[in-house]
């Protein structure tokens, strides 16, 4: 039997510390998957909102009913002759009703409300000269107000970016707590296996051999626990309502496409973390054993 093979056997595979390591790794991996999902989702939201809102704008026209059509035609003329605007179209009443339904509820008699007319613009990648466009609209159709959505976009993107930062900080904290728990568990494992260490030292084993025997055992437990925690968390994410469902706040939380591969890195990273945390602990504890 080789040194490596016996190294895998000298540490008993039972005991409270073994379960503590497995359970800690599983719980932390579970939380890490959610933090990672939050990070990925918020990054995606920030990018989507930034991209979607940055290339669209709205002209709101609040004119008296008898002037509404003529003002609309004037605004469309201005927009069609403005460089940087790819398309301009008047939103139909049904579209306006759909936008308001989320706030005012269904079956609202919109005809009874003095609603402004909305003209949706799609901008080219260069975009228009916004200040120039505002001045032209003020001159040609004073009742028209150009809204490039920046007052919506900026806080949304800021919120998403901050959410992503929180998620990343959470991941770092989870990693730090995992390392601390595994170091404690490693210390407990070494203490409860004093007899194993004494016998190994007695027969001439070096600290490196003894430390690696424990580190291998602890890392293997951490890998098993983290794999289980990751698998459960990924299944839980799959069970969440998807985008377009009736729960818009939670919709879309999770991974899409290739990002599903990201949580698969958590078990090996946990094992690596367990390896370094337990190795340092093992050498520290062994120094106290002759």
């Amino acid at each position: 039997m080789s040194a490596r093979a016996i190294s895998g056997l000298v540490v008993p595979g039972r005991g409270q510390s073994v379960w503590l390591i497995t359970l800690s790794a599983a719980a932390m991996a579970f939380l890490a998957v959610f933090a990672l999902a939050l990070s990925v989702t918020s990054a995606r939201l920030a990018a989507n909102w930034s991209e979607a809102l940055s290339q669209t704008a709205t002209v709101r026209l609040s004119a008296p009913p008898e002037e509404m059509d003529s003002q609309t035609a004037l605004v469309l003329d201005v927009l069609r002759t403005t460089p940087g605007i790819a398309e301009a179209r008047v939103m139909v009443p049904e579209e306006q009703a759909a936008l308001l339904e989320a706030w005012l509820g269904p079956d609202l008699p919109l005809d009874a409300l003095p609603l402004p007319r909305l003209i949706e613009l799609t901008e080219t990648s260069e975009g228009p000269d916004r200040q120039g466009l505002r001045l032209r609209l003020a001159a040609e159709a004073p009742a028209a107000v150009y809204d490039d959505h920046s007052r919506w976009r900026r806080p949304l993107v800021q919120a998403a970016t901050r959410l992503q930062s929180f998620a990343l900080v959470s991941l770092v904290l989870i990693g730090a707590v995992t390392a601390a728990m595994i170091a404690l568990a490693a210390s407990a494992a070494l203490s409860s296996n004093g007899q194993v260490i004494r016998v190994l030292r007695l027969v001439g084993a070096r600290d490196r051999f003894i430390a690696l025997a424990f580190v291998r055992s602890i890392s293997r437990r951490a890998l098993i626990g983290a794999s289980a925690g990751t698998a459960v968390a990924m299944l839980a994410l799959l069970a969440l309502p998807q985008a377009g469902s009736a729960v818009p706040v939670l919709a879309g939380l999770g991974f899409q496409g290739w990002t599903w591969a990201l949580p698969l890195a958590i078990p090996p990273l946990t094992a690596l973390l367990a390896w370094s945390a337990s190795l340092a602990t093992a050498f520290r504890v062994l120094k106290g054993v002759t």
Partner: peptide
């Protein structure tokens, strides 16, 4: 060294315990 209480690793077989001074030192 032969101790009075022998000091074995109780989860290893006699064969593995006896071979330990060699396997644990490479």
């Amino acid at each position: 060294v032969v101790h009075q209480d022998c000091q074995f690793l109780d989860h290893l077989t006699v064969e593995q315990n006896v071979g330990l001074p060699l396997t644990a030192t490479g």
